[in-house]
């Protein structure tokens, strides 16, 4: 079976004034299947939002992308022109669940009016707002409210309902839980999981490890523009745990674990060190780390423990 989304060697560079070059995304490869949730985790500034923009064809003009991102085995999202993306891809084949839903909704229009327009645009149908709202558990008696009259959770559901209208097989959620209370994080995550179980593929970009643990099937850890670990979620968060030292450090920083930060800060993407980008912060770095470790499909580290067969 061909994966729904097949990303191979995706690289994004930004050309900045003064000849500087920002290596936002480097050689990223992963697959995503129907009914699967992949959580892409990493610190802010690690390139994960740029990756999302690349998949939506929304890179700014000074970006250069190479590699490919095949949707459904055919269309290359990095090479498709804007008209194709606008008319056949966004909303129809890739649905976006935005980071700040209240900013994503037009303040002077009701939720019903948002849904009505999106329905007409994507399906050509009139009516059906109640059904569309129900799919994201948005209460029908709130349809005539304006965005500022909604709580954070309801605004999130309204935005999700809009993302689901076109019945896109691939959902892309960009930090869907930022700034939400933990209770709301869990509810939002569970709702997204429900859509995965209904057959959607979900790529969730987040720095919220709790949300990732709650719903992801697999986890991709991004550091300085590269994927450094790609693992099964249960093994990653449970036993035997992550294999890349950065991923271990990230989990150890959680208040429910040892609450100790990884020393230092990630390197700037316009001044990446030669070799492993994490070496300067890594407890187990050696001379071998002067060379960039190859990503073997699960981990990119010279010192990763062998994958145990637990």
């Amino acid at each position: 079976m061909t994966p729904l989304l097949d990303v191979r060697g995706l690289t994004v560079r930004f050309r900045m004034p003064g000849g500087r070059e920002v290596a936002a995304v480097t050689d990223v490869s992963f697959e995503l299947r129907e009914g699967e949730c992949l959580a892409l985790i990493g610190e802010s500034g690690c390139g994960k939002s740029v990756l999302a923009s690349a998949l939506l064809g929304l890179l700014p003009g000074n970006a250069v992308a190479s590699g490919r991102a095949l949707l459904g085995g055919g269309l290359d999202l990095t090479a498709a022109d804007e008209r194709v993306l606008a008319r056949t891809v966004r909303g129809r084949r890739v649905g976006l669940v935005p980071q700040s839903p209240s900013a994503h909704l037009t303040p002077v229009r009701t939720v019903r009016s948002h849904l009505r327009e999106t329905l007409r645009e994507l399906t050509g149908r009139r009516g059906g707002e109640e059904a569309a709202a129900a799919r994201a558990s948005f209460p029908a008696d709130h349809l005539d409210r304006y965005p500022h009259q909604l709580s954070g959770g309801l605004a999130q559901r309204a935005a999700t309902a809009l993302a689901l209208v076109g019945d896109a097989p691939l959902l892309l959620a960009d930090e869907p839980t930022t700034g939400l209370d933990r209770e709301l994080v869990e509810r939002t995550a569970d709702e997204l999981r429900r859509h995965v179980d209904a057959g959607h593929a979900l790529l969730m970009i987040t720095h919220d490890l709790a949300a990732a643990e709650r719903i992801a099937d697999r986890v991709a850890v991004m550091y300085a523009g590269r994927i450094v670990e790609l693992a099964d979620a249960a093994r990653f968060f449970g036993s035997p745990g992550p294999r890349h030292p950065y991923a271990r450090g990230l989990l150890d920083a959680l208040p429910e674990r040892s609450f100790t930060p990884i020393p230092g800060m990630p390197p700037e993407l316009d001044a990446l060190p030669p070799g492993c980008a994490f070496a300067a912060r890594c407890p187990s770095a050696t001379d071998a780390c002067a060379a960039v470790p190859a990503f073997d499909g699960t981990v990119a580290c010279h010192h990763a423990p062998e994958a145990s067969r637990a």
């Binding site: 802010s44 700034g179 990230l250 920083a253 609450f259 930060p261």
Partner: peptide, 17 residues
């Protein structure tokens, strides 16, 4: 006031320390 709500786990732990 919600100093770490927008931040990742490692930065949160660093700022708290």
């Amino acid at each position: 006031d919600e100093m770490t709500a927008m931040l990742d786990a490692s930065t949160t732990a660093a700022l708290v320390s």
